[in-house]
C-alpha cells in the first residue's frame, strides 16, 4: 500500500524517466511550500516534469515563456476598460494558477523577473492598488538556462535565495533514453495522467510536513552544516539563516514523503545539495561543478552530532 505521495512520484516517474531523486526533491519542495528552480539545458524534460507534477496533483497549470521583452503585466495581468460595464475589469495573468511554470526565467529582464519573484514570496499580487490573493497551493517551477548561454540575465543571489530547491535534470541515462525513444509521445502520456491528490489534501499534507518532529540532535546537525558552510574558505559565503530554515523545512517534507513523523540526519543529507547548492558559490573561479564537489565534501566531513 503506497501513500498518495509515493503514487505521485511513481506516476511522474512514468513520464519523466530515470529522474526519481529529482522528482522526489521537487515534490518535497512543493510540500514545504517552496518554489523550485530547474536549471538545465533546453529539452531535457523541464516542462514535462512541471506538467506531470501538476496533473498528478490535480492542480491548475499555467506556463509562462520568459523572453527579454516580457513585461510584468504579462505575468500578473492587466485591467482592461470594459465598455459595456463602463468599468475596468481585471484580467488575471498566468501567475494566477496553482502551478506556474516560468520557463527560461533568466531570459527576461530583471524587472520582469522580480515581478514574479515578489509574487512567489508574497503569495499575492498587487495590481493598480488592489491586492489579490494567489491560489493555494501555489507552486512556481522556474527553469533557467545555464548562465553561460547568450541572452540571459542571471538571477542575483538574493533572488536565487527565494527558491527553496534547485535541481538539475541532466541527460537521461542510456536505459531511460532508450525507453524515451521507444515509448509513446510524452504529450499524449501527460494528457491521460490521472490526479492522485486533490488540492485540499495537498494542503493538509503541507500542514503535516510542517509538523514533522525535528529533535535537538537533528537541529544540532542543521546548525553544524550551516556553520560549516560559513566557516570554510572554499565558499564565497555561507548559508543565510533563511537557508537553514529552508534546509529544515525541506528535510521535513522529505521525511513525510517517506511516511515518517520525524526528521533523520539522512533526510538532511538528501536535501542538502538541492537546498544549498544554488545559495552557495565556490570561492575563486567557482563554477557550479566545483560548488557541488565542495558541498559533497562538506557533507562527508561535518560530523553528525
Amino acid at each position: 500500500m503506497s501513500t498518495p505521495l509515493q503514487r505521485v512520484i511513481d506516476q511522474v516517474g512514468t513520464v519523466v524517466l530515470g529522474k526519481q531523486p529529482q522528482v522526489r526533491l521537487a515534490l518535497a519542495c512543493l510540500l514545504a511550500r517552496g518554489h523550485l528552480l530547474v536549471e538545465d539545458l533546453p529539452g531535457v524534460g523541464k516542462t514535462t516534469l512541471a506538467q506531470a507534477i501538476a496533473r498528478s496533483l490535480g492542480l491548475a497549470f499555467q506556463r509562462i515563456q520568459f523572453t527579454n521583452d516580457l513585461l510584468p503585466a504579462d505575468i500578473l495581468g492587466v485591467s482592461v476598460f470594459d465598455s459595456t460595464r463602463q468599468a475596468f475589469t481585471f484580467h488575471a495573468g498566468p501567475v494566477f494558477a496553482q502551478i506556474v511554470l516560468a520557463d527560461e526565467l533568466n531570459r527576461a529582464t530583471p524587472r520582469t523577473q522580480s515581478a514574479l519573484l515578489e509574487a512567489m514570496e508574497e503569495r499575492q499580487v498587487t495590481v493598480e492598488g488592489s491586492t489579490r490573493e494567489l491560489p493555494d497551493p501555489f507552486f512556481v517551477i522556474a527553469t533557467q538556462n545555464p548562465s553561460h548561454q547568450l541572452g540571459t540575465f542571471d538571477l542575483p543571489e538574493s533572488q536565487l535565495d527565494r527558491f527553496l530547491v534547485r535541481i538539475r535534470l541532466g541527460y537521461p541515462d542510456a536505459a531511460a533514453e532508450r525507453a524515451l525513444l521507444a515509448g509513446e509521445d510524452r504529450r499524449s502520456l501527460l494528457a491521460v495522467l490521472p490526479p492522485c491528490l486533490d488540492p485540499a489534501s495537498l494542503r493538509a499534507l503541507q500542514d503535516e510536513a510542517r509538523a514533522v518532529h525535528a529533535s535537538g540532535p537533528l537541529l544540532d546537525y542543521v546548525q553544524a552544516l550551516v556553520t560549516a558552510t560559513r566557516a570554510t574558505t572554499e565558499l564565497a559565503h555561507g548559508l543565510s539563516p533563511r537557508g537553514g530554515l529552508a534546509l529544515l523545512a525541506c528535510a521535513r517534507a522529505w521525511a513525510l514523503i517517506d511516511g515518517r513523523r520525524h526528521v533523520e540526519p539522512e533526510d538532511l543529507q538528501a536535501v542538502f545539495p538541492g537546498v544549498a547548492a544554488h545559495r552557495l558559490q565556490a570561492a575563486g573561479s567557482g563554477d557550479s561543478a566545483s560548488t557541488d564537489a565542495r558541498i559533497a565534501r562538506l557533507l562527508a566531513e561535518v560530523p553528525l552530532p
Binding site: 533523520e264 539522512e266 562527508a300 566531513e301 561535518v302 560530523p303 553528525l304
Partner: peptide, 9 residues
C-alpha cells in the same frame, strides 16, 4: 563510522 555518515548509510 565516517564523520558525516548517517546511521542508515
Amino acid at each position: 563510522r565516517e564523520p558525516g555518515e548517517g546511521p542508515r548509510a
